[in-house]
Design a binder for these strands. Structure first.
Lengths: 211, 211
DNA sequence: AACTAATAACTGAATGCTCATTCACTTCGC
DNA sequence: GCGAAGTGAATGAGCATTCAGTTATTAGTT
């Protein structure tokens, strides 16, 4: 059990550091956070961080990877648990997105604020996990299009990006404004209805095929 | 004309610095840009920047104010020139948003990437210009709701944020991907159609009033 | 119009501060 | 008592900001 303990000890400390980094970055942003801030937030010495991460950039990227993976797993699991077709799942997706964020405010602030920056400026980092997130949404939309419950004249990639953007922006407000859960459910509902109405088929969508 | 020349000379240099800052920030982000980078981009000495701006933060904020004001003025002007009701204007708004961004890629990258960061971390800066931008959209939506061409069961503030988010996220991709203008028009069109279909009234929106 | 002086605009090397990162040393687990 | 894990003071690089010195502009005087 020695090995297992070591393992556990190791990754427990790693996790503590990640948690400290999350709190610190969410509060002050990556560039305004000192490595020593993360260290004291995590209750370790400055040097310890370098036993688990190559440098400050690596800490940021690792935090992304780790937390995004967690989010994606939860989303996937909870979506699969939703019975019914594409529309209920889309609604669930929006609700989940918002409620996850409210339950984990630090995480929400971190991701909404740092995602763009980091994607662009942390050299040679492609952010594959964010791609996976979008992919969940995209495949859901494509399925809806194939089944005929969603209009097919829109590009699924484009639409999923637009939806993500809408959610993300509204989220940013929610996270910063400390809104109560009831409001969150309501706002999520409104957004979901708007998006779904925008995506369900209507007569005028195919003016060429008069058949 | 001596006085006028001095004036012109002054603000021309200020503008040169802002332009340099825009290019530099768009390329490398605020935190990865040295003041001396801005200086050389603008063709002035490092010290000169401090004759026009209090410090690096002030330069960032001034750039926001200045460029946002320019954008807002253009949006307002061009929207007023659109005849017809709310729907054509909404469509025009989306097209304008995208085409402005493509014509001014640096500006688009700067705003999409730095807006959130700055809003949150440049102390005591409330970003009133961004509020004015959202307000244009919100008042357009409210008018549509009053006139009955847009559904009234959604909060206009929430919706305008969601729309901004959707546009902004798609824009980010467009700006980074260097897409040709034809694609831009098409993507703008798709987004506009989706949003408008999501916002126009349908029977099921008021299930309580069976009347 | 030429000269002078006063003022404003500009310059960029020097200053000093803020951290990320390292490493000689200590502590822990076995 | 050995190897791994952890520590935190010391190092040094990077960079925002300053300011003594230079150059351009304007106004005043003859």
């Amino acid at each position: 059990m020695a090995k297992a303990d070591r393992q556990r000890g190791n990754s427990e400390k790693r996790e503590r550091i990640l948690q400290g980094a999350l709190r610190a970055f969410a509060q002050n942003g990556f560039y305004n956070t000192r490595v020593s801030d993360v260290a004291s937030e995590a209750g370790v010495a400055d040097g310890t961080i370098y036993l688990y991460f190559k440098n400050k950039d690596d800490l940021l990227i690792s935090l992304f990877e780790d937390r995004m993976e967690w989010i994606i797993d939860r989303l996937r699991d909870e979506l699969e648990a939703v019975d019914g077709g594409v529309l209920p799942r889309l609604r669930a997706f929006v609700q989940l997105h918002f409620h996850l964020a409210v339950e984990h405010r630090d995480l929400a602030e971190f991701i909404t604020v740092e995602l763009r920056q980091s994607a662009k400026f942390v050299k040679e980092y492609e952010n594959p996990k964010f791609g996976a997130y979008l992919e969940i949404l995209r495949s859901l939309i494509e399925r809806g299009q194939r089944e005929g419950v969603l209009r097919s004249d829109l590009d699924s990639r484009l639409v999923s990006r637009a939806i993500f953007g809408a959610l993300d922006e509204v989220l940013l407000q929610l996270a910063l404004a400390h809104k109560p859960p009831a409001d969150v459910t309501d706002e999520a509902h409104q957004i979901a209805e708007m998006l779904i109405d925008g995506l369900t088929p209507r007569e005028h969508h195919k003016p060429t095929s008069t058949e």
